[in-house]
C-alpha cells in the first residue's frame, strides 16, 4: 500500500545541532562523554568543538513526504543504519530531508508483513552530505488492515 510513495521526497528542513539537545541525548544513552558536553574539552579536540553522538540524528525534523501516513501504533523497527562523512558538530546548521526508499510485502511464518524503508539525509548549508540514515519499518498485516478501514 506504500508502493506509490517509492522515490518520493520531503521538503528540506533546516535544523540546528543544539547544545542542550546533544547533552540531553548523551545523558539519555548513558554517554556523557566530555567530547559531547564539555566545551573546553571540545575546543582542545581535533574538532575544535563538541560533536554529537552517532545516533543523535533521531531528533531532527526531516520534513513531510506528501500523503505518506504511517500508523501511530503497531510498527516494528526492524533495522537502522547510519553513514557519516564526518561527525556532526555542536552548533552547526544542517538541512534535512527524507525519502521513501523501498516497499515490499512478504508472507512468512507469522503472516503477511510489509517492509518500508525510509532514508534520511543531513547536508551542510552548501548541500554537501554529512550523514544519511535508513530505517526499515515492519508493518504487520493486522495494522495495515486497520489503516484501510
Amino acid at each position: 500500500m506504500f508502493t506509490e510513495f517509492i522515490g518520493k521526497r520531503s521538503n528540506k528542513v533546516r535544523n540546528t545541532v543544539e547544545r542542550g539537545a546533544v547533552k540531553k541525548f548523551a545523558e539519555a544513552i548513558g554517554d556523557l562523554h566530555p567530547i559531547f558536553v564539555d566545551e573546553e574539552y571540545g575546543k582542545k579536540s581535533r574538532y575544535q568543538n563538541n560533536i554529537a553522538p552517532p545516533t543523535f540524528p533521531r531528533v531532527f525534523d526531516y520534513g513531510i513526504i506528501e500523503g505518506l501516513k504511517l500508523p501511530a501504533k503497531g510498527l516494528i523497527h526492524g533495522e537502522q543504519n547510519y553513514h557519516y562523512e564526518r561527525p556532526l558538530i555542536v552548533g552547526e546548521e544542517i538541512q534535512c530531508y527524507s525519502e521513501v526508499k523501498s516497499y515490499f510485502e512478504k508472507t512468512g511464518s507469522t503472516g503477511n508483513m510489509a517492509f518500508l524503508s525510509i532514508k534520511q539525509y543531513g547536508e551542510d548549508l552548501d548541500g554537501h552530505l554529512i550523514f544519511s540514515s535508513e530505517q526499515v519499518i515492519i508493518i504487520m498485516e493486522a495494522v495495515r488492515k486497520g489503516m484501510k478501514q
Binding site: 544513552i29 548513558g30 553522538p53 552517532p54 545516533t55 561527525p87
Partner: peptide
Amino acid sequence: MGNLAKLFTPYH
C-alpha cells in the same frame, strides 16, 4: 543502539 555506540566514543 545509542548505548552500543558508546563503545567507540573514547576513540574520537
